[in-house]
Each structure stands twice: as C-alpha cells, then as structure tokens.
Amino acid sequence: MTDRQQAELRKDEVEAGTTTGLASPSVDVASGRQNSLWSDAWDSLKRNVLFWIGSVLAVLFILLALLPGLFARGADPDDCALGNSLDKPSAQHWFGFDQQGCDYMATVVYGARNSLIIGVLAVLFVLVLGVVMGAIAGYFGGATDSLLSRVTDIFYALPLVLGALVLLRVGPTTNIPIINKPGPAAVALALALFGWMTAMRLVRSQVIAVKSADYVAAARAMGASHRRILVRHILPNAVAPVLVYATITIGVLIAAEATLTYLGVGLQRPTHSWGLQIEAGQSLLRTAPHLVLFPSLILTLTVMAFILMGDALRDALDPRQRA
C-alpha cells in the first residue's frame, strides 16, 4: 500500500467507526501461534462479561419476539377493559395498564416482534447494498470508484431519520413496490436506503487494502474471473469488520425504527410497536409515566444488547488490541 492509500483507508475507518488493523503498516500476521482469527476471537469473547450480558439480553429479546405469549403472563394485549385504564403497575400486572385498559406488559411484549423483523431485515438490505457497492468501487477503482463514492457522499450528507421520514411519508401515494405498503418491510427498506453508506465505505476500504496482495495477483494470473477473485479471495477479508458493524447496526436501526414510528411514519396502529406506545404515552408523562418508561426501557435494553455484543466482537477481532 502507498502512504496515500493508507491515509485514505484510515480516513474511511474513522468515518466507519471501526478499525480493521489493515490501515496500520506492518501488522505481522505470519508470526505467533497458528490459531485462526476466529478461535482467538472466541477465546477472548468467552472472557468478556459485557459480551455475555449483551448475549443474554439479545436472546431474551429474540424469545420475546418469537414467543411473546410466554412473557405476557397470561394476558392478551387486545383484551382490554376500560375500567383498568391507566392503573399503576401492581403485583399481578407488572407494567400496569394503558389508557384503553389493556395489560401493558402484554402490549409491550408483543411489540418486540416488529422491532426484530425490521432490525434484521434492514441490516440485511444494508449489507446487500453496502457490500455490492463497496466491492465494485474498491475492486475496479478509477472512474467507477469515483462515481460510486460520490453517490455515497450524497446519501451520507442526508441524516438517516430525515431521509427515511420523507420517503415513508410520500411512499403510500407512489407505486414503488414495498415502499407503498406501510408495514415492517417498507420501514426496513427506507432505513436501508438511507443507511447503507458506512457499510459501503467499510467494504470498499477492505477491498482496496487487499486487492494488491500477492495471492490476489496469483489468482488473477491463474485466470480467475473478477467475480471469483472478489467473492473467494477478497471479500472474506471483510467478514470480521462487517460482522462487527452489522451487529451494532441492528441496534441502531431498531432505535431508528422506533423514532420513525414515534414521528408517525413507521408502523401504524393497531400494530403493537414501542414507538407507538411511547407516542401514545407522551402526553400522559405527568400522570402515568409508566406508559413511556416501560417500552423505553425494553427498547433501550434491546439496543444495548446489540451494541454490547458488537463492541465485544470488535475488541475480540481487532488484532492490535491483543496482548
């Protein structure tokens, strides 16, 4: 790598919020034990308390999403009695009741599923867009790279929530598939369309870092196609940083979904969603704070689960931090 490439790469890394180690000169990967990156990483993860906290929270959240009935303590979120309206939390009903007199724990628990669907779906869309664009830009370089990088800059200049807000607001009146049907898929797609840029930059910098390696030249000399070189030889190098990024991003996008729903353009009633619950509770913050606080708490724990796991993964996979 030239100094210039290294400087570029370092800049990409700073913007992407991850470090890969590849931008630092002379990382000696050949010496030392022959353990693979992944087994070393697992050894370090096993000893990380924060990783276990994150994992337990994430497993809990996935169980909430898959089997909400288990956690609703026998209550049905749609079986409401106005007589219970706004009752405070009690021993029988841990989260109290909402304004319509629905058991609030059941309501909040049933909100997990949509968050999980949107978080995972949006990250998948982000990865597809980011990996394809980043790989093409980094591998072919030159004018292709300039063009794709400028497109990335353009999207990067628009705040995620703002772009998704506009798209989802006008979406239902258009005939664009998915976007025109309000629901989890539309929200996920809108989030991905305005949130893929960091993934692209991350993959691009990884591709640039290894594309001039000897083994890539060897593969090319043997007549491998561009596609094969990219998929078999270059992209596997990007798996570790992309995995870290994707884990954290699930949390970030779940928070963004709640925000969009709160602002009125995400999921709509009668869907159970934390954003809608926070929105409904905000005017009652003075009299019934539990309406805002419980969905907020569960949402925060969910986001935290993915951020903790991602942070721990990053520490485990970054060879420079290992003693």
């Binding site: 924060l50 949390g251 928070a255 709640a258 925000t259 709160y262 954003g275 926070i278 905000q282 913050l285 003075r286 704070p289 805002v292 606080l293 907020s296 949402l299 925060t300 986001v303 935290m304 951020i307 903790l308 942070d311």
Partner: peptide
C-alpha cells in the same frame, strides 16, 4: 459511555423530561 450510546435519543429525551423536568 456504553450505557449512553445504547439509549436512543427518543428515550433519553423522555427520561430527561420525566426525571429532571417533572
């Protein structure tokens, strides 16, 4: 800092309103 980063700004806004304001 890990805790703060994990709290969505939306949640933070309401918690701040509730605790420090109300």
């Amino acid at each position: 800092t890990t805790l703060i980063v994990s709290i969505p700004i939306l949640v933070l806004a309401f918690v701040a309103q509730f605790v420090f304001g109300l």
